[in-house]
Design a protein around this nucleic acid. Sequence first.
DNA 1: TTGTACGCGTTATCAA
DNA 2: TTGATAACGCGTACAA
Lengths: 332, 332
Amino acid sequence: MKRITIEDVAAAAGVSRQTVSRAMNDKGEISPETKERVLKAIQDLGYQPNRLAQGMVTQRTKTVGLVMPDITNLFFPEVSRGVQDASRLHDYNVLLCNTDDRPEEEIRVLHSLAAQRVDGIFMIGSVADDPTLTRFADSYSPIVMLNRFFAHPNVSLIIVDNERGAFLAVEHLIAQGHRTIGMLAASIFSRSLVRRVRGYEEALKHYGIAVDRRLIVGETPILQGGYNAMQELMRAHPEVTAVFTYNDLMGLGAMRAVRDLGKRVPEDIALIGFDNIGMASMATPSLSSIHVDKYAIGQKAMNRILDMLDRPDDSFATIEVGVELIQRESTG
Amino acid sequence: MKRITIEDVAAAAGVSRQTVSRAMNDKGEISPETKERVLKAIQDLGYQPNRLAQGMVTQRTKTVGLVMPDITNLFFPEVSRGVQDASRLHDYNVLLCNTDDRPEEEIRVLHSLAAQRVDGIFMIGSVADDPTLTRFADSYSPIVMLNRFFAHPNVSLIIVDNERGAFLAVEHLIAQGHRTIGMLAASIFSRSLVRRVRGYEEALKHYGIAVDRRLIVGETPILQGGYNAMQELMRAHPEVTAVFTYNDLMGLGAMRAVRDLGKRVPEDIALIGFDNIGMASMATPSLSSIHVDKYAIGQKAMNRILDMLDRPDDSFATIEVGVELIQRESTG
DNA sequence: TTGTACGCGTTATCAA
DNA sequence: TTGATAACGCGTACAA
């Protein structure tokens, strides 16, 4: 069980530690013969440099942290894959942390990652308050945040065009002839929420429909939350003929609720979600949605972290992520 | 941006490094006054010990590796949450790696985790061959594997009762009056697959129904795979009235396929899946399934790793995980 | 009760 | 081209 070190390799190859290091990182001159001899010893012994030790001296751990509310929420696994696939290409590993939208937990996790000296952090659904986050960012970089405004030299932003997405969704419902359109909103406060609600309202206004706040029901943005919110909305406002949901999970939960109340989608109620998770296309009826390239978001975040690492003094523009209307059966 | 070290704290408190260390780990004697003074300095400076350095000397990184085929597959996020919640309680972090069921990638990832000196590894859906894995396990521990037999002192096993689950599923279909029952199997070879197919066959035999291998269609065990396999099966064997799918993802894909061929679930075709992922209950119709406590699997795996770390010389019994039939609309 | 010195495994600096 | 030596930040015997 004893791990082999660079010293073992040096002994086997009859050279010094330093020469072994040179052979691996091929910087500094080294004769082809010795290099080959060392490489062979490495091969024979199955030696792998200790990343901790490397990290100590290089101040690079080749590890990044990924902080999100809950990997169990279908939006995040795809983002996570994007991060991980991109990180693998650069020999990075990813530490994954869930916060359940709890600010204290988010802060705890952040400090834990800092203690582990990750090279960068990607935060999704950040819920901590600005001052606390600022203090953290002051002492740590680089950080990439998704869907949250945060002006700080060590922080880079990725913003999805949530407002436009919501507008497209509601515009689509209106185009289908709907006039009384509800919304299932998230009970977790976030920038995404604010923008999606605004997009919803803007679309209504744009087409001359009065906004009725009572048609907006807030709930946990998961399947069950969508289910509950939809039941509530339909009971209180049977006149609603179409509903835009904060995300697809709520949309799918809502679909189930509609059915359990003896109504049909889209005949009685049209539904459109947001995010376009894989399940949306497979549902019956399939769920219309606003497509967001989650995988690409993950990739971009990781690459941005690498860029920031490469050029610590540069400032980087916010990355804008477009959206697209995906029309399916749930909106007729 | 310069990180503060234990030395800074010592200077601030007017003591030596050692005293600071003592104050934190409260072992060894230390006067209450100095301890308090040190703790205050730590607080003031916002000092956090460098985990890399700690790891170097303690040979413990407080980090575990979680290796799985694809976090995007709905089964794994829940397991992942179980691992992470349990690990958090012990101040551990989790490195997540996807292998896409590729043996080379699995091996690469394993070595990467070893290089990072994780304290333990949890492998799900391991696809590497036995000799390679044995060689790795020889030099590394502890390892926990899910649903794969592997006799090795450094490896602990968690086994789901797949055969019984499959038996229950098919028995249920038979109880509903079905006699021509197909199966959508995974095209990825694994112990789970073998056992689920066996359970399917055993149930048929047990109730005096001849096994017809042509009714077993293999495909990728995801939504799209289920969709494709179901189309194929229904075209080739329209006489089939019920189908047991390797997992819920395939079941949900199959449900969609049935509908796209103009048939209904469960009137024309009954469907039952495996795993009982969250989406199963929300589908329309809701999908019957075999419940597996994924979250508990993750928790148990993490705790087993900790136990193995505590008592390296003990041998540990395989953890058996039970299953349960969940009857829903898709089977009438 | 407190401080000194060494070692963990690696890379970087400098001298040979 | 190669090797000795000093960091990196911490825990821990041992000495004071």
